[in-house]
Structure formats: C-alpha cells, structure tokens
C-alpha cells in the first residue's frame, strides 16, 4: 500500500529537552491513522513537526516524506501548498475575519492531480452550520463551529493528507463521535487523515491504524482492532469493561 505521509526517526527538541524521540510513522493513502497518548506525550509536537510548524522554537531532526518526496526542508506554507494540511490544536482560524474571509484566504492550488479541492457546496454539505454563519466573524463562532471552519479551510486547499490535532476539543460528547464519523466518511471517499485525539474510545472507532505515544516515543502500533485489545491501551484509556462496547455503526467493528 502506498504511503502518503511518512516520517523516519523524527526527533523534536525544545531547548535541550526531547519531546519526540525517533518516531517512525506511516500514513497509507486512503487511510485514517490515529495517534493517542497522555497529556504531554508529544502528540502535538509530533504532528506539528510533520507540518513543519510550531508556536515555539523546536529543533527538528529526521526525514518527513510526503507522497514519496522529502519535505523536511520546506517551510509550513510550502508544505501546505503541497497538500500537507494541519489543523492545529486550539485556535485554527482568524477571529477578526468572517467565515467567508477565512475560507477565501485559502487558495486552491493550480495543480491538483490526485488531490481533491473541496468546493463550497461540498463543505456546506459537510458542515451546514457554516453556511448560516458565513458573514459572522470568527470570534462570534462557537468552539465547535470554529473547528468546523478550520477543517473546512484545510479541505479547500486540496489536502493530500489532513493532520487533525484534537478536533473534538470543546465539543459535546455526542458531537465528538459525529465529527469523527464525518471525517471517516471523507477517508472512505479517498482522503488520508492523521488524527490526534484525546477521546481514545471515539478515535478507536473510526481509525484504521493506531500509534500509542508515551513520553515522546511510540510504544505500541497496530491496526485499530488489535490496539483495542492492547493491555496498555485498555488500562490507560479504555478501562477493562469497555472493550466489548463498540460504537454502533462503527465502520470497523
């Protein structure tokens, strides 16, 4: 299976402190891959480093490969042009701009071979609320609406692979699964997604593969079905009795 995004022994340090340690990871084309782990495990640091982006000043080492081409030397906006799109943790939109302006900031690339740029209609079909909010400023949106807008902006840029860092933060529990399922639908249509998610149970019900991160290193990795049974995952994130309770309608029971 061809890989759309991969990294090889990616190491990220803040000052002298290693936050991500020799992580090797692979997102196969048309798949949804999850990264789970405790607070501070290095999930955001990892996903940001893949996108070549950070709010801090990390030192990054190791190769990042997008669709077979190394992109480690490219700055974040160039990686975005090439279809590596990150929706960061927390604030992912411009509060001073309207929904429409936020979306118009993104320019659909000229060359979209083997990529799909989502048009307005597709985006409004995915997130109908955004249509009603079109002329509202970002600051006037609810937390969930902001997440929808951030994801929509990334979709407009014709992602080869979409990196989502905790898209469900601030959503009501019922909406978390709904959002993730919609993301899953996009994957079933051909998109590739790397998902960082705190809500492990919900994440496990939509992803194909899972990486478990602890203190910056991958301690377990495998298909979601297997990882659901993994002792470390069960103990730390699911709790014993939960294993059997698969989400109804999950595409990967």
């Amino acid at each position: 299976m061809s890989s759309v995004l991969a990294c090889d022994r990616l190491t990220v340090r803040y000052g002298g402190k290693t936050a991500v340690d020799r992580v090797t990871l692979d997102v196969p084309a048309g798949r949804m891959v999850g990264v789970i782990g405790a607070n501070g495990a290095g999930k955001s640091t990892l996903i940001n480093a893949l996108a070549g982006w950070s709010r801090g000043r990390p030192e990054v080492e190791g190769e990042v490969v997008l669709g077979g081409e190394p992109v480690s030397g490219l700055s974040a906006y160039r990686r975005a042009h090439r279809g590596l799109l990150l929706v960061p943790e927390g604030k992912g939109i411009f509060g001073g701009l309207t929904v429409e302006e936020n979306m118009a900031l993104v320019r659909t690339p000229a060359d979209t071979r083997d990529r799909h740029a989502f048009g307005e209609d597709e985006i409004f079909a995915l997130f109908p609320r955004l249509r009603e909010r079109l002329h509202h400023k970002g600051t006037a949106l609810s937390g969930g609406e902001r997440q929808m807008l951030a994801i929509s902006c990334a979709l407009r840029a014709a992602p080869r692979v979409l990196l989502l860092d905790e898209p469900s933060v601030g959503l009501a529990p019922r909406l978390v699964l709904e959002l993730l399922k919609r993301m899953r639908q996009l994957v079933d249509l051909g998109l590739s997604i790397l998902l960082v998610e705190q809500n492990v149970r919900a994440a496990l019900s939509v992803v194909d593969d899972v990486y478990l991160l602890e203190r910056g290193t991958v301690v377990a990795h495998g298909p979601a079905e297997e990882m659901r049974e993994d002792k470390r995952v069960v103990e730390a994130y699911l709790g014993r009795s939960d294993i059997e309770i698969a989400e109804p309608g999950s595409p990967h029971p």
Binding site: W53, Y77, A80, G95, G96, L97, E101, L105
Partner: peptide, 24 residues
C-alpha cells in the same frame, strides 16, 4: 480584497497564516 484579508490575518496570527498557505 483577498490581499487585505491576508494582511489582517497576518496581523492577527502570522504563525497560523502559514498553515493557510500564506507566505508570511
């Protein structure tokens, strides 16, 4: 205009602007 929106976006958050494909 889009250029104006880009300027306002950069004023608000130049780091985030990069993720929108803007060459800050």
């Amino acid at each position: 205009t889009r250029i104006g929106a880009m300027v306002r976006a950069i004023a608000e958050d130049p780091k985030l602007a990069q993720l929108f494909g803007i060459n800050a």
